[in-house]
Design a protein around this nucleic acid. Structure first.
Length: 229
DNA sequence: AAATCGGTCAACCGCGACTTT
DNA sequence: GAAAGTCGCGGTTGACCGATT
């Protein structure tokens, strides 16, 4: 069996852009297939991780504020190392980010200050604040309505739902074949105009993914893509 | 100035759970 | 119902960078 060589290590901006454009079109699922058809030479797992931890819209990336910090400590105490669950309570933060932050900052801090001010604050003075945050965020998630900066993501997310579910039931061969057809079509048509110079022979387009999302005929392409007739 | 150390964080790995065939 | 494929999670690694010696 032939083992294909998969790229590892740090992602290049070019790869990020390519991944973003494919996720915008195909949605956040079937990562293995997406990885294959994108021509990135990465594993599906790697693509998913990059998207979830770095490229996904509305991720915060900046330093954690005091509230977030306290919430993490509080939730870690309640839930243990269930970083994915904790991350769901902190909009814009990823499980990986929280896990790293816990390991490098909070764990030590909690140990050092065990029995001291920090612990005392967590257990008493800031309890209300923490509970407020938990309640607020939980409520938002449970109703499916995410406040402020997450609303944009919710819109994008739900826009993926506009893809007929049945299309996703198409499996590997026809699915991938269709996507490859689409790529060829895209190269001929879309790239044939203003993007011609940005597309190379491998089908890679060095193109701002925003143009896919915001372009007026963006989903028209997906329409033709999923139309198997 | 160079070497070493320690902190940070992006990315990888292994595994279990879930889904699809 | 079994096997294969896929996803998601948590732990770990390694590259990078600033601080210290």
């Amino acid at each position: 069996m032939q083992r294909e060589h998969l790229r590892k290590g740090t992602w290049l901006q070019e790869e990020d852009e390519q991944l973003t454009s494919f996720v915008a079109r195909l949605g956040e699922r079937r990562w293995d297939s997406l990885a294959k058809v994108s021509g990135l030479g990465r594993s599906g797992k790697s693509c998913r991780l990059r998207w979830m931890n770095y490229l996904r819209p509305n991720l915060k990336h900046g330093p954690f504020n005091v509230e977030e910090e306290q919430l993490i400590v509080q939730l870690q105490k309640q839930l243990g190392n269930k970083w994915a669950k904790i991350a769901k309570r902190l909009p814009g933060r990823t499980d990986n980010e929280i896990k790293n932050y816990w390991r490098t900052h909070l764990r030590k801090k909690a140990q050092v200050q065990q029995g001291g001010d920090f612990k005392h604050k967590l257990e008493s003075g800031t309890q209300d604040l923490n509970q407020q945050s938990i309640d607020m965020v939980s409520k938002d998630y449970s109703t499916g309505k995410v406040s402020c900066q997450d609303s944009e993501w919710e819109t994008k997310d739900s826009s993926m739902d506009t893809l007929p579910l049945s299309d996703w039931e198409l499996r590997r061969s026809p699915y991938e074949t269709r996507i490859l057809d689409w790529i060829a079509e895209l190269k001929k048509g879309y790239c044939g105009k203003e993007l011609e110079q940005d597309c190379n022979s491998t089908g890679k387009c060095n193109h701002n993914p925003q143009e896919f999302e915001e372009g007026s005929d963006s989903w028209d392409y997906s329409g033709s893509l999923w139309d198997m007739n």
